[in-house]
């Protein structure tokens, strides 16, 4: 049976509270903190295509352009005063150096007139070659702490990336899988923003111990809205 019935009215952006701080989950996978006019994106993995090409897998060279386009759109939507790129901004340590000139200019344009923080990640342990911005291991803002890899155990106010969380539900015999923000009110793990990045189920063992299971909500990314799904409804793999 193929159902072509439309979906209901569009809900406003989903607002959440992490360790007492208010934030907005954007359907693009970015997080916006209105109080600080701060935009957070994680795991851009720029130049992933060329990183594969170097090793003989000729993935399309358009991933950087696609990611930058979406980044431009979300920056335009929120006009933040500061941007945090939460690590793995480039797919490998040479990524920034390899980036074609046109893309570099596009990125510089986005960075102009605002603070920009590059947080180091496992894919990019060194500052991006030839790009401005602050290079930091982690960053504290109010009650929140931004770092690439989630720290083990409880970490009130931690906002991390690295794991590329995704979630899966089953409705009417059909499975829907999407990237998601994973949050239990104390900690948030960001979805990967890059256009060629896959996701890992939030119920995977890699997430063990990070969230209070009963409070976990997956904010699944839809085409135009974010869908908050209670942890109890999620399915593994």
């Amino acid at each position: 049976m193929n159902v072509v019935e439309g979906i209901g009215g569009v809900l406003p952006a989903v607002e959440i509270v992490i360790a007492g701080e208010g934030a907005v989950c954007d359907p693009s996978g970015a997080l916006y903190l209105p109080a600080d006019r701060l935009l957070v994106v994680s795991d851009l993995h720029l130049e992933k295509g060329s990183s594969y090409a170097r090793r003989g897998r000729m993935l399309p060279p358009y991933d950087t352009a696609a990611t930058l386009k979406r980044l431009a759109a979300v920056i335009d939507r929120h006009r933040p005063a500061a941007v945090v790129s939460l690590g793995d901004s480039f797919h490998d340590a040479d990524g920034a150096g390899r980036m074609p000139e046109a893309f570099r200019e596009r990125l510089l344009l986005l960075m102009a007139g605002r603070e920009w923080y590059w947080i180091s990640g496992n894919h990019d342990p060194l500052p991006p070659e030839g790009l401005p911005g602050h290079w930091v291991e982690e960053l504290g803002v109010g009650g929140l702490i931004f770092r690439h890899e989630p720290s083990p155990g409880e970490a009130e106010g931690e906002i991390a990336g690295h794991l590329h969380p995704g979630a899966r539900i089953v409705r009417r015999g059909r499975s829907v899988r999407r990237a998601c923000f994973a949050c239990d009110g104390a900690r948030l793990v960001m979805p990967a923003f890059g256009s060629l990045t896959g996701s890992l189920n939030v119920l995977d063992r890699a997430f063990a111990g990070l969230f209070r299971r009963e409070a976990l909500t997956a904010y699944m990314l839809g085409a135009e809205r974010v869908y908050p799904i209670a942890g109890a409804m999620l399915r593994p793999t």
Partner: peptide, 17 residues
């Protein structure tokens, strides 16, 4: 009898919400 194939995943997410 058949599950819904393709196309409607957004509406399924909406339904879950």
């Amino acid at each position: 009898k058949e599950p819904v194939p393709g196309g409607a995943s957004e509406s399924l997410l909406g339904e879950a919400v």
